[in-house]
Amino acid sequence: MMKRLAYFLPLVLLAILAAYFSAGLGRDPQTLDSVLINKKVPEFSLPPIRGFNAGLSNNDFLNKVVLVNIFGSWCVSCRIEHPFLMELKKKGVIPIYGINWREQNQDDGPRWLKKFGNPYSLIGDDPKSRGAIAFGVTGAPETFLVDQRGIVRLKHMGPITQQNWNDTLKPAIDKLRNR
């Protein structure tokens, strides 16, 4: 009897492998788990963009839940996301910090914000990706949720939409605020 069962072993192994690989198929290799989750905001310090007074550094994260949004005027998805950020700003839902990533021209970022509106309360200029690398960013837009103690709690890749706002970001923010 045992011997007979042994013949099925390859089939069982194949089934396990197939299940493992088919689970992997559904995963997007571009979405990396951030190593920063549940760690302090990385050390960084960025100057203001042209025409603004304040830049952005890791010292700006204290006593409030904030979003950090990596954006650039060259980034099409940021353009798609932008109206939603403006709405958050208008309703005063949550402060949003901006990292203006890799503008070719120093005026590009400010001009973009002037044209479409500025949803950010603080913006750092990041032409050489120092801020982006500190956050382990791989593309724009990316958004991080940081809690009152300056701990990174969530990373969102790609544009924020009403749907993923309702599904992940909003509940996470509510949870942090109700602690």
Binding site: L32, D33, S34, V35, L36, P42, R102, K128, S129, R130, A132, I133, A134, F135, G136, T138
Partner: peptide, 30 residues
């Protein structure tokens, strides 16, 4: 930009391991 960061860190006197550790601390073992 990462290549430039690696070079800047080396110029600042970081050891090879320190440079690699910094990048790993941001992006993970990946």
């Amino acid at each position: 930009d990462l290549r430039i960061l690696v070079r800047d860190r080396i110029l600042e006197g970081d050891s090879d391991q320190a440079v690699i550790d910094y990048v790993v601390s941001r992006y993970g073992d990946f």
